[in-house]
């Protein structure tokens, strides 16, 4: 069943066309990859879906409902959560306190049961649990350090933990592997797979193709705002236009 359908999505910044007539569908439980050279419009696509910028044309249908034009917090509360390519932690708060904020949201309170930290749960404990889930060592000092002092690897995990706190139906990861070392990526991949097995549908924007192809069975490539091909990783990599876009870039 289709969870998210995007129809003829377009976005213009002044005279520049950042996205042009994008169509795609993602089914429930799937992991889909989106690739494309820098500046091809991947982040803009995410921003349109999540309501951070207004699309100029097209339809975005999530669970049968057109969500184009809704405010970002409304879209999150429907269950679409995204990470930021450039991490956005609350630098002046300890890492685990960063998660109190998503746990305070209507979605976490409604869907989380005791994990929502409502009247009967302790949000601090839930936050520490979530951090442990994404790979912060529970017994160490790391969860208590100011987020502003954490290295990239932990910040990426923190972005992911923020989404987990929101019980996502659809998780959109904007380059979570970039800036990480090989071993860090190797420890993140099982995490993504585990999430997917627990029923979360995932869209991954990635430059690290090898790691992406391990988890995503279907990939879409865009270049200069146009969708050029969609298919299995092998089909996409065999496509002439993709080779050209990557080699030309």
């Amino acid at each position: 069943m289709a969870l998210l359908t995007v129809h003829g999505l377009g976005k213009k910044f002044g005279g520049i066309t950042a996205l042009n007539n994008i169509d795609f569908t993602i089914d429930e439980g799937e992991i889909m990859g989106i690739i494309g050279p820098n500046g091809s419009g991947k982040t803009t696509l995410i921003n349109c879906i999540t309501g951070f910028i207004r699309a100029s044309a097209g339809k975005i249908v999530f669970e049968g409902r057109d969500i184009r034009g809704l405010a970002p917090h409304r879209i999150v509360n429907l269950g679409i959560c995204r990470t930021f390519q450039i991490m956005r932690p609350y630098a002046s708060l300890p890492a685990y306190k960063n998660l109190i904020i998503p746990l305070y949201s209507p979605r976490a309170r409604k869907t989380g049961g005791w994990r929502g930290g409502g009247r009967h749960g302790d949000r601090n404990i839930i936050a520490l649990d979530l951090l442990e889930e994404v790979g912060f060592e529970r017994e160490s000092k790391v969860p208590y350090k100011l987020a502003g002092t954490l290295p990239t690897g932990y910040l990426k995990r923190l972005e992911l933990a923020r989404c987990l706190a929101l019980n996502p139906r659809l998780l959109i990861c904007d380059e979570v592997f970039s800036g990480l070392s090989m071993s860090e990526i190797a420890s993140m991949v099982p995490l993504i797979e585990k999430l997917n097995r627990s029923g979360v549908t995932i869209i991954m924007i990635e430059h690290r193709l090898k790691e992406l192809f391990r988890v995503a069975k279907r990939v879409m490539a865009i270049s200069y705002g146009d969708k050029i091909v969609e298919g299995t990783p092998e089909e996409v990599m065999a496509n002439e236009k993709v080779k050209e876009a990557y080699l030309g870039a």
Partner: peptide
Amino acid sequence: EDLGLVIKGIKDNDQSVRASGINI
């Protein structure tokens, strides 16, 4: 309190608060 943290979050990083499903 938790509300105070959310308020501080808005000062630190309002986009992140919106991405957390909160109406800033």
